[in-house]
Amino acid sequence: MKKNLKKKIILLSGAIVVLLAGLVATTLAWLTDTKTSNINFVMGDVNYECQFNINSDSIVVPGQPLFNADAITITNKSTVATNVRVKITVTEKDKTDLITDIVEITFDENSDWVNDGDYWYYKGKPTSLTDDSANISAATVPSVGDVLNFNVNMTFDGSKVGNDYSGKSYTITIVVEGKQAEYVLWENMANIDFTTGLAK
């Protein structure tokens, strides 16, 4: 008889525990709602490849072309619309002082390259982000695979390069920079490291 009573008490206790657990579980079920949106984009890429057609003569004289025809070929490998510019600098070998003015840089009459400051801009330097023919559209390199010829004529300037320059070596550096055509102007890129795309 006592044994039966004990069994009943155990069963009753178990039932109470289950009931309490059920109550606790119920109080955690608050009224809520949730939504999640997944959005995917692919970043564009600005990428140019360059080929240099340099005069192979190891010793040059003033007036002699330093590049052959189609001096620099720039091929657009970008996935978005871009702008391009080229900068040429000259230093004495292993020195850092710029002596760019000892070379004469000219282009054919119908060249697409427009000089502004230290750079030659492909079809000019847009000054506004407004999409009109005078600005972005004209200077934009539109398609992947487009080949731009930087057909520069470059010589040492005979009026500046005299006998003092004989036997010396000079380094000519050509920097080709590309940027996305939209949302940013060249003038906003003054402090940008073109290798990283971030501020210097």
Binding site: K35, T36, S37, N38, I39, N40, F41, V42, M43, D45, N47, T79
Partner: peptide
């Protein structure tokens, strides 16, 4: 190339 940007709200 083709860096993907994924946004989740």
């Amino acid at each position: 190339r083709n860096v993907k940007l994924i946004i989740k709200i």
